[in-house]
């Protein structure tokens, strides 16, 4: 893996650096680009999608993001063929309109994007290139600014969706099925055109943002794309998970209440 440090660089520099590095790669190879803001993550993902390359991103810390772009294994690889890839991407796009069709293992999402099949079902976490264009994170308080732009303020995104997860199971009936459904639901969130602004975990839901959760990669992907991930502190304490939180940050009931009241819509799987 080749790593480019583009921390502190303003667009288009991170993309230009990545583009130059990709031109010199013959594959199979992975290129990691480190950047300090979500818009740069989105702009890098946008380039990868246009080039038909699988891309994954995650938030490493505040103001620290990793974007990994994969160059196909060998030139005869079917995903290196643009037409095959294009149709695969179309399929992935279509599937996003019906989230339920993305099967429980998440393999359709990854396969569709041409991501390494070894990743396969268990970690369907690639931020699909196509999906990455559709992030709804305009409300992100990105502190960087473009000298090319004269206006002083971009209004908040119109949609302010909060996803509320209060259990580690989706629906009631069979908890084993419920766990599979919930994992699939969270994966599906990463594939949507417009991402939720916030995902709130409370009560049993906090297991999903902690060590041992199979959804951690997907949640980190969401976070890297600008979705805020918050978990109830009282609940973490109750389940003895306070030290095990792996993604997002701890919150309190005041913020949970405020976020839910301010949301234009609340999604509760």
């Amino acid at each position: 893996m080749i790593t480019i440090n583009a921390m502190g660089e303003v667009c288009p520099i991170p993309v230009v650096k990545a583009r130059k590095a990709l031109e010199s790669l013959v594959g199979p190879e992975e290129l990691e680009v480190l950047v300090d803001n979500e818009i740069a993550v989105q702009n890098l993902s946008k380039m990868a999608e246009q080039k038909g390359l699988p891309v994954q991103s995650k938030k490493l810390a505040d103001d620290w993001f990793s974007v990994v772009i994969s160059v196909p294994v060998d030139p005869d690889d079917k995903f290196a063929n643009p037409s095959v890839l294009a149709s695969a991407m179309t399929a992935a796009k279509l599937s996003r309109s019906a989230a339920a069709e993305i099967n429980a293992s998440g393999s359709m999402g990854t396969g569709g994007m041409g991501a390494g099949s070894a990743e396969g079902g268990s970690k369907g976490s690639g931020i699909a290139g196509a999906g990455s264009m559709g992030t709804g994170s305009a409300g992100t308080p990105g502190a960087d600014a473009s000298a090319a732009s004269a206006d002083t303020c971009i209004p908040e995104a119109r949609k302010n969706t909060a996803v509320v997860i209060s259990s580690r199971y989706m629906g009631s009936g069979d908890d084993q099925l419920g766990a599979v459904l919930m994992k699939s639901f969270i994966f599906s969130l990463t594939q949507l055109e417009v991402l939720p602004k916030t995902v709130i975990f409370y009560n049993g839901g906090v297991h999903l943002s902690c060590e041992g959760s199979e959804s951690l990669q997907d949640l980190k992907s969401l976070e890297a794309m600008g979705t805020e991930i918050i978990s109830c502190g009282t609940c973490l304490n109750h389940y003895g998970l306070t030290e095990k939180l792996q993604v997002g940050r701890v919150t309190n009931m005041y913020e949970i209440a405020e976020t839910m009241l301010k949301a234009s819509s609340i999604v509760k799987p």
Partner: peptide, 19 residues
């Protein structure tokens, strides 16, 4: 096409693309 778009351009996309 050479990916020389700006951060503000992506913010604009985020802001209005759903419409």
């Amino acid at each position: 096409d050479a990916f020389l778009y700006t951060a503000a351009g992506q913010r604009n996309r985020n802001h209005v693309q759903e419409r």
